[in-house]
Simulated scan of single mutants.
Amino acid sequence: MKLSELGERKFLTTVVRKLLEHSELDDVYHKDGIVYKMDGFPLSFGFTFSDPYDIGWKSITAAVSDVVAKGSLPNEVMISIGLDPDLEVSDASALMEGIIDSTNYYGGKVVGGDTNGSKKGEGWIDVAIIGKALCYKPLSNAKEGDTIVLTNKIGMTTVAFISFLKGIEVPHHFLTSLRHPVANRYLPLVMHNNCEHISTSTDISDGLLISLSKVAEASGKGVNLTTIPYREDVLDQLNRLSMDPFSSLKYGGEEYEALLVVTGREVEHIMEEMSNWGMRPLIVGKVIEREGLYFMGKKMEPSGWDNFRGWD
C-alpha cells in the first residue's frame, strides 16, 4: 500500500502511534513546563502571488500558531532550509527576512539552524520551536458538556482554495490571509488567566473538521458542531461560487485560529477577555458523550487537506 492510498492521518494513527511510547499525537509536545514544536513544508507549496518574504513569514506563523493555541509562548526558533543553488541571493535574503520578522513579531528569537542545497522545485523549510507553557492542556482532557469556542470567524482561505480549484479569480482581500497570515499572539495570556476553566485547546490550521475530530478521538468523546462559523463576506462569495457552506468545510485550512474547550460557567467571561485582546470569539459546539463528529446532531466524517492524498 502506498502513502497516497493510506493517507496522512491514518499513517499517523496506525503506523507512527504504534512506534511511539505515548499514544496521544498532539501538535505540540509538552514536558516540565516546556513545549516543543516542529513544522515544515516544501517551498513549492507557496502560491504564485506569494513572494519569498511571504513564505518566510508564513513558515513561522504556521509553527507559532500551534504553540500559542496550546497556551504557550514561543522562545527559541531554529530553521532548516533547502534552497536551489540557482536561486537569486536577493530572494534567499527576503526569505530570511520574513522568517526573522515573523519570529520577532511573536516574541521569539532565531538562534540557529541548517542550510542545504536542493534541486529546482524541491526546496523546503522546517521550523523548530521551544517555548514556555502557560496553560498547556492535552486533547484528552475534553469532557462531556464542555463548550467549544473559536477565536474568530473563518472562511477566507476556503474561498481562495475553492476559487483556485474552479479557476476563478478571487477578490484580492481573500488572498491576504494566505500571503501574510497572523496568529493570535495574545491568546496564551488569556488562557493563562483562565487556565482552570480550560479543558484543552488546539490550532485549526489543518481545517476545522479535522481539528474537531482530533479533540473527539483523543478524549474518547464526541463533538457536536452547532454552526458553520464563516464570515459574512465568505458566505456571500461562496454563494457566487455556487458552493453551499456545509460542503465547503472540507476546503478549510491554513487559518491560524484556535479552539478553546471551556468547562463550567466561565465561557462568557473568557470570551469577553478574548474580545479585549482583539479577537471576536464565538461558540461553535459542545463536547458530547457519544463518540464521533457531528453537525447539528447528525454524524459526519472529518474531511480536509491530506498531505499524502490532497483534498480528502
Rank of each mutant, 00 (worst) to 15 (best):
residue 247 S to L: 12
residue 27 D to G: 08
residue 186 Y to E: 14
residue 131 G to L: 00
residue 242 S to F: 13
residue 104 N to G: 07
residue 107 G to V: 04
residue 81 I to R: 07
residue 64 V to F: 07
residue 302 P to Y: 08
residue 217 E to A: 13
residue 33 G to W: 00
residue 32 D to L: 00
residue 69 A to L: 01
residue 7 G to C: 03
residue 249 L to D: 08
residue 14 T to K: 15
residue 68 V to G: 00
residue 122 E to G: 02
residue 183 A to H: 07
residue 31 K to N: 10
residue 175 L to S: 06
residue 48 T to M: 11
residue 117 G to H: 13
residue 235 L to T: 03
residue 93 S to N: 14
residue 211 S to F: 03
residue 31 K to V: 03
residue 178 L to W: 09
residue 22 H to W: 15
residue 101 D to Y: 10
residue 198 I to H: 00
residue 198 I to K: 06
residue 128 A to L: 05
residue 204 I to C: 08
residue 259 L to K: 02
residue 118 S to F: 11
residue 274 M to R: 03
residue 241 L to R: 12
residue 247 S to P: 11
residue 161 F to K: 15
residue 161 F to I: 12
residue 171 P to F: 13
residue 56 G to I: 00
residue 290 R to H: 13
residue 270 I to N: 06
residue 292 G to T: 02
residue 85 P to C: 04
residue 266 E to Q: 12
residue 222 G to P: 03
residue 28 V to I: 05
residue 61 T to C: 12
residue 68 V to M: 01
residue 78 M to F: 08
residue 5 E to T: 10
residue 247 S to Q: 14
residue 69 A to K: 01
residue 75 N to G: 09
residue 213 S to A: 12
residue 92 A to N: 11
residue 35 V to T: 06
residue 181 P to C: 11
residue 241 L to M: 08
residue 36 Y to Q: 00
residue 276 N to T: 05
residue 198 I to R: 03
residue 33 G to F: 01
residue 281 P to R: 02
residue 35 V to E: 01
residue 171 P to I: 01
residue 218 A to N: 07
residue 105 Y to C: 04
residue 266 E to H: 11
